[in-house]
Design a protein around this nucleic acid. Structure first.
Lengths: 239, 239
DNA sequence: TTCTACGGACGAACGGTGTTCGCGTCAAGC
DNA sequence: GCTTGACGCGAACACCGTTCGTCCGTAGAA
């Protein structure tokens, strides 16, 4: 089956659920699932930057050309990865009095998935919202926001904002982490070093930055994340 | 002067302001400013994906190796571009009764700059906050948030959230725009087509998505942007 | 004035990337 | 048993970021 048709099918409502035909040549023939699994493994191990058609092919003991029988191009593979990632998200049944916590929970799930596959959130920003699995998550979030009593327009925009922020937060974190590992030792910026650099700025030009360097670099774990998500969700409630 | 030292100087408080020495070989020798100008021109014309050391060099009528006398590597060039972009932002004097609108205005300036250079916001997510010009914008935003009466911790986190959201919003928009130009005609997703696709999803599995497809794809201009920015800023005020 | 040393410019090359072309080869259908 | 067609994949193309070694014009020393 042509990978172009395969991609189109993923964006179509119908899902006939036919079984793909038997193997052809290989002992264990390549399937799309295999490609996706291998790719996800690569991303989890070495980050999204290390995701290369050649590396995926090599991990499957073949050449890069073989992948193009299953995948339109790298962007298509990215989309498949995002789809798989979204499929892992558990969506709760909206409860009228718990919708805030439920929204927070789904966002945290998304965050953890993105951080499990560093840098993949970059591909999420490019993902078309009509992919089945992506649409599934969007639907779940929209249901929660609507359960909170927001107008459809507010709910739609808030869901968009949440998804966008989660992806950006994870992307920024992954980039920072990669830099810490990969860059010249002189430029690694752990939090303490960053705080020191900020304090070292001329106080005349940067009074607030120098004074509040601790707050700017502060926050254990995902405090910063929770802060923003809560800000968005709370704002959605009372308006 | 070594480009590594040049980069280090950009992150240092001191700014001696000496004059760079006279030309060497070329009729009009290459300067960092020229490189940055050329690169920005490329990004403005063809997007960040088209920003290539080779293309920058070609636009300057030279080979790629010549650039490395002025720039550490491509990441360094990215940082310089972000710095230049931030330098264009006008920061208002915080007024106690107008800080919300002032915050909105600075965010809109950032947004317009990012959209003027499509895709460059991707580099912004990787930019170190100790770069002088980046720190300048951060300082200005922090001053505005503090003028609103927020606690230092809330102000710091809110500024971070704003900056992150603006970059993500612009990045997503740039990606979508590039896809519309660049992709197979069958996959271009103008808003009307997107709405049609969402409505075509099976209503049983996607009740809210299909019903509110108009809201999900709606919003003229930067309504979606304004919505989120306002949500964040308002939440910052009363807590 | 002559000589030396320095540092920017840059041609060529290396190892990597995504993607395509075309050939071989096997399994299924007649 | 033969034909057919789809899949696997080696080889190649055009492009990327980066480095090495060389060249050479100028600045300062003698």
């Amino acid at each position: 089956m042509n990978p172009r048709d395969r991609r189109a099918a993923r964006h179509q409502p119908s899902e006939p659920g036919g079984t793909d035909p038997a193997p052809r040549r290989r002992a264990l023939p390549i399937t799309v699932e295999q490609v996706v699994d291998t790719a996800l493994g690569l991303v989890a191990a070495d980050g999204y930057e290390a995701l290369t058609m050649r590396r995926v092919a090599a991990a499957l003991d073949t050449g890069p050309a073989s992948l193009y029988a299953h995948v339109v191009n790298k962007a298509d593979l990215d989309e498949l990865l995002i789809g798989r990632l979204c499929a892992e998200i558990a969506l709760p049944e909206p409860a009228p009095d718990a919708w805030r916590d439920q929204l927070r929970d789904v966002c945290a799930q998304l965050r953890d998935q993105y951080l499990k596959y560093p840098g993949l959130s970059r591909a999420a920003l490019a993902a078309a919202p009509t992919d089945r699995q992506v649409a599934r998550v969007g639907e779940g979030l929209l249901a929660l926001a609507l359960a909170g009593g927001a107008s459809p327009q507010d709910a739609a925009w808030a869901v968009d904002a949440l998804v966008l922020y989660v992806a950006a937060y994870c992307l920024e974190r992954s980039i920072a982490q990669r830099k810490a590992v990969h860059e010249d030792a002189a430029w690694v910026l752990d939090r303490e070093e960053l705080r020191r650099r900020l304090t070292a700025l001329p106080a005349a030009d940067f009074p607030h930055t120098t004074r509040h360097a601790a707050e700017l670099t502060g926050g254990a774990g995902h405090d910063r994340f929770d802060f923003t998500i809560t800000l968005l969700i709370n704002g959605l409630g009372h308006r």
